[in-house]
Design a binder for these strands. Structure first.
Lengths: 339, 339
DNA sequence: GATAATTCCACCATCGATTGTGTAGAATTT
DNA sequence: AAATTCTACACAATCGATGGTGGAATTATC
């Protein structure tokens, strides 16, 4: 259980801790340590399986080489892919990431943030719940480098990475309209969520531009879940008037809606068209592969990392940056031209 | 940028660091500190937004309250769900987790392990690549509490959490046989992977018990990917003789195989039956929902955490434990009775 | 041979928190 | 009034690593 430390090595070779430290950090030349001493130390360190103690180093250096990443739902493939890319990019820069999952629980978010700050992470990438922005303020108050991800909060000045939610949605709706759809339903996410608000705004704008009216009954906001998608779709489809197409605000809702449509005995796209935000692996697996708005997941991850690291490295006050990325309409086969 | 430390508070109130420490750790009564002093300290700490420094505490306590979790592919829903449950359980016990993704890269695995040990994590939950067990030995050598997850390595004594791969597969194969299938293909994972070996063993055993012969051409080992599933299925289906059913060794392979089958112009389950290991959200979304062997994901996660923490807490040498969990055959509609 | 110039390292403070031990001064006892 | 007991803290060592400063020993220079 006895671990080798710098002191262990120093004692054996009869040099000081600092000398060992300098050698093992490749600073021995600059510090005027002889090659002979350096070699002895290097060899012994290997023999004793010396492994640096990062807690000590972090304490001393006031730098942990750790980044906190907080997402709302790690089981959503959108986030798990983001995390994969973020982890890979940060790892390449020598950073480790601590991943936290809020599960849309505000208390959890708050407590996780405190925990990350206690651990003195060098920065945080946060995909906030947005019900309250108090948690975010704490991070800023503590002066911890922060990148807000997948959200767009007007009242909060910060670095952002986000996509053109409104424009992306408009592409989708306009595509539906070009196929002759006039009655288009919107099954969205939480009403306090900026993505949902912007996607909804895009939906309304496109409808308005085409002089199409929006039926209140065709619009459902709710949670970003399969269940919400399913319930909303079936509820809408069981009423007297039904739309000819649906827009869904994320992958989970889309899957739920698809299942709901099928369970209502309707076929996609013959009986009803559907288009949604987020691309995902199984979108191509349905009887008719799904047409979606794809977010540039890897690019988003890389931009978040780059933005954050530039904050971490530079103590000077760069103005806040918003990295706004473009979405792409991926046309598959879940909508039908009814012109 | 000046952070409050115990010393800051101590200086203002004119007490010593230790007194402040004891108060903020609720040890003041035991240490004979007056309520008046304690209150003053508590109030001031709050006013100054004091936040404990975990790097310092960890160094002193030789305990980081951090657990490393290493998985092979975080974007696989099986793992992302495991991680979700593991994180939740550990969080409840005051631990933070560092999630690492090897992406089946052995060097990465090795380097991640070293990094975790450098950070002095209190324990590691590892789902190893298994091409080499050297990396695992390092963890054991360093005496870091370890739980091996989702694998079964005979040569390596350790704590394990795993499922009845062989028995589970047998349930699946026997189900197919009971439906009259005699020509059953096996599309598996990496040949060095213990899960794959055991699942394959289960497949062979069931076939043998039913006196069915295994066609070499119907068996494909490879990577746990969509592509491998797709390629294998199409390759098999394009040959002269084709099986009436497939068993697939994980969720990715299953999806790939399904797509392959569809792209060959065949219908599931009318033309060909399929059954696979791992349940997943979209299994229910296909035209005909998929029949699968479900692993008790949450239970696996909780057992891994419990096992690990018992190692972390007790320094005494408990004998190694293997937590072997049962799988469940979830019958949906991807197989057809051809009796 | 004496002084100057290097070479090569040791010393010590520091990061922030924790804890065992020691001790003034007040309170109580005899 | 002296002895004893409490009360309420302070002190200092420790965890392991880092880096500025200073100085002994060796070599070079005239």
């Amino acid at each position: 259980m006895n671990v080798t430390t710098l002191q262990t090595i120093a004692d054996i070779i009869n040099v000081s801790r600092s000398t060992v430290s300098r050698v093992l950090n490749n600073k021995w030349e600059r510090s005027g340590i002889s090659r002979v001493t350096a070699d002895k130390i290097t060899v012994l360190a290997k023999d004793l399986n010396y492994l640096k103690n990062d807690t000590a180093r972090s304490l001393r250096e006031k730098k942990t080489f750790t980044i906190g990443v907080i997402v709302r739902d790690i089981t959503n493939p959108f986030y798990s892919h983001i995390i994969k890319f973020v982890e890979r990019a940060l790892y390449a820069k020598g950073y480790t990431i601590i991943i936290c999952n809020t599960g849309y629980d505000l208390d959890r978010e708050s407590s996780l943030i405190n925990s990350l700050i206690s651990r003195r992470v060098d920065g945080i990438i946060l995909s906030p719940i947005q019900k309250s922005i108090e948690n975010i303020s704490i991070i800023k108050f503590r002066n911890v480098p922060l990148v807000l991800f997948d959200c767009n909060i007007d009242e909060m000045k910060a670095d952002y990475v986000l996509v053109d939610n409104e424009a992306g949605t408009m592409k989708a709706i306009e595509y539906l309209i070009s196929q002759g759809h006039k009655e288009i339903g919107y099954i969205g996410g939480n009403s306090y969520d900026s993505n949902n608000r912007l996607r909804y705004a895009g939906y309304r704008k496109s409808m308005q531009l085409a002089s199409l009216s929006i039926h209140k009954n065709y619009v459902k906001h709710g949670r970003y879940t399969f269940k919400h998608g399913y319930d909303s779709a079936t509820e809408i489809l069981r009423s007297k008037n039904v739309p000819t197409a649906f827009f869904t605000a994320n992958n989970r809702i889309m899957l739920g809606a698809c299942k709901g449509i099928m369970d209502c005995g309707l076929q996609i796209p013959d009986d009803i068209s559907i288009i949604g935000f987020d691309d995902f692996e199984t979108a191509t697996m349905l009887p008719n592969p799904l047409t979606v708005i794809r977010q540039p997941v890897q690019e988003m991850a890389l931009n978040a990392v780059a933005l954050l690291l530039s904050r971490v490295d530079k103590t000077n006050n760069i103005p806040y940056v918003t990295s706004l990325l473009k979405t792409e309409l991926v046309i598959r086969n879940s909508t039908k031209d009814i012109n």
